[in-house]
């Protein structure tokens, strides 16, 4: 009698335990897959949970990033849209004497093997960066001179300095390879507006 009662209790406690474990693990899996996929500061595996101050004060990525235009990769934020549409107004300079430089000039790069041509827009890039961030350290300011290639980019050079590290990752091929071969009939290289003087677009070192 007493034996059967004990084993019955044991059995139900095992079932209970198994159930809890299953529910918890399902919750973790669902969380990782669908919760916008932003890891919390507590759960990202890098922050030290024993650091109570940091755990209390550091913002979780989801708090901020879920409010911004969504994207499918990287921070899952369309950062260009966020700045263009005024979701965020990041400061362009700390000091009054700093010259804030922006430029609107598209460059079409034709040496893309079997892929579609690449269109590089200066406007979206200078909304974040200064000329000297890329010229002449990563890219010569002259069109067609830099030996840009996908191998080097994947190793973190050229575009790969940022893309794959902080800006949208290199899995998003068609965002750069966006000019469809066969339909493009214009000139390769810099796309100056009609009547514009190319000298106005020349790179000026500081």
């Amino acid at each position: 009698m007493s034996n059967s009662v004990r084993s019955g209790t044991e059995k139900s406690s095992h079932l209970f335990l198994t159930l809890i474990v299953l529910v918890l693990s399902t919750a973790f899996i669902v969380d990782a897959a669908y919760a916008g996929s932003w890891l919390s500061i507590k759960g990202d595996g890098n922050h030290d949970r024993r650091n109570k101050t940091a755990m209390k004060f550091l913002q979780d990525p989801e708090d901020a990033l879920s409010q911004l235009p969504p994207d499918t990769a990287g921070n899952q934020v369309d950062w260009v849209k966020a700045i263009e549409e005024g979701y965020i107004q990041p400061r362009s300079n700390l000091y009054d004497h700093t010259e804030v430089r922006m430029m609107d000039l598209d460059i079409i790069m034709p040496e893309t093997s079997t892929m579609n041509y690449v269109m590089f827009p200066h406007q979206q890039h200078t909304a974040w960066l200064d000329c000297k961030n890329c010229h002449p350290v990563f890219f010569e300011a002259e069109v067609g001179v830099s030996p840009v290639n996908m191998g080097a980019i994947l190793e973190g050079e050229f575009c790969g300095r940022c893309h794959g590290a902080v800006s949208f990752p290199l899995t998003e091929c068609n965002r750069c390879h966006s000019i469809i071969k066969g339909t493009f009939t214009g000139q390769f290289g810099a796309q100056y507006p009609e009547g514009a003087n190319p000298e106005d677009y020349a790179y000026v070192p500081e």
Binding site: A64, L68, I88, R91, S92, N93, V100, A127, N133, V166
Partner: peptide, 14 residues
């Protein structure tokens, strides 16, 4: 991500 909401890349990197 936290910093670029407040500052453009060019502030720190330029």
């Amino acid at each position: 991500w936290f910093h670029r909401i407040r500052f453009q890349c060019k502030v720190c990197h330029s």
